[in-house]
């Protein structure tokens, strides 16, 4: 199959994957709290319903920006699987996140604005990691594309254990899981209300949800890159990692943005930076 087809496949399959993942997430969370939880397909019901509701436009730039958010997120995944240079993906990924920040920030609401600023902090905290991670993967495999990394005989996870550890940490941020859910939250009645999404209604909120599905699928694809010798192993690793994230989500409370920024930079610098430095010094 040619890479372009993989890219198109991502656009279609990723939301299904991401939506199901969100469904499993909610069930597992409920079980951890001693509840039964919603049906597996609940995220799809929610998004479907949101499309049936009225969308209140608070600022006309919001809807196009959110479409940009979904679009660039899908494009990031599609380009990655479609054989584009992986480092390029890091920038498209950041652009997608920026669209969400702008959509929320351009609303005059204090909650939405605070969410946007914090999301910007989150972006600042996590972006160096993603650039370094993709660069390091390209470095060890001497490949530049997704297929190239999968075809490489080098076992990435064994070369980049520090980066993998840091990934677990940073993924918490990108999946918007507690304690790093500083920019938005599904749990109500907190200082943030819903942060970023406070003023998004109807399909506007649905776009955010869908972009998040794409994002989870892309993160899953990144995990697979680490286990490039066996895709099923990569998926399994993602499942385990996600389970851990849910556990942490249910057992911690939200951190301050200062802590998020400092700790993420520290982890990125120590584990990822250290690992990269070792690679370069050993001449890999």
């Amino acid at each position: 199959m040619n890479p372009l087809a993989y890219g198109l496949l991502f656009v279609v399959v990723a939301p299904i994957f991401g939506g199901l993942l969100a469904g499993v997430d909610r069930i597992v969370s409920a079980r951890m709290q001693g509840r039964i939880g919603p049906p597996l397909l609940q995220p799809f019901y929610d998004v479907g319903k949101l499309f049936q509701k009225e969308a209140r436009q608070v600022n006309p730039v919001v809807e196009p920006l959110l479409l940009g958010h979904v679009g660039f997120m899908a494009a990031a995944g599609a380009l990655a699987l479609g054989g584009t240079d992986l480092i390029f993906i890091a920038f498209v990924f950041a652009l997608a996140a920026l669209c969400l920040v702008l959509a929320a920030g351009s609303v005059n609401s204090p909650y939405s604005f605070a969410g946007a600023e914090r999301e910007l902090v989150v972006l600042l905290a996590s972006e160096p990691f993603f650039i370094l991670m993709l660069a390091a993967i390209c470095k060890v495999t001497s490949a530049s594309t997704f297929a190239g990394v999968l075809a490489s005989p080098v076992m990435v996870a064994l070369e980049l254990p520090g980066v993998l550890l840091a990934f677990l940490f940073v993924a918490t941020i990108k999946l918007r899981k507690s304690p790093f859910d500083i920019s938005t939250s599904h749990h109500p009645h907190q200082e943030l209300v819903n942060g970023l999404t406070s003023d998004m209604s109807g399909r506007l909120l649905a776009y955010v949800e869908m972009a998040h599905w794409y994002e989870s699928a892309l993160l899953c694809a990144f995990v697979v890159l680490f286990f490039n010798w066996s895709v099923p192993l990569g998926l399994l690793a993602f499942a385990i990692a996600y389970g851990l994230e849910v556990l942490v989500d249910n057992s911690t409370s939200r951190a301050k943005w200062q802590l998020v920024l400092r700790s993420t930079w520290a982890v990125t610098l120590l584990f990822t930076g250290g690992n990269v430095l070792a690679l370069f010094l050993l001449g890999r």
Binding site: R26, A30, Q33, G34, R35, I36, G37, P38, P39, Q42, Y45, D46, R56, H186, P188, H189, Q190, V193, N194, T197, S198, D199, M200, S201, L205
Partner: peptide, 18 residues
């Protein structure tokens, strides 16, 4: 857990827009 209305997709949103 006793009543667990989330079983029916009910979410307590805390936000009128949602």
């Amino acid at each position: 857990p006793l009543y667990d209305v989330e079983r029916f997709g009910v979410v307590n949103t805390g936000n009128p827009k949602h």
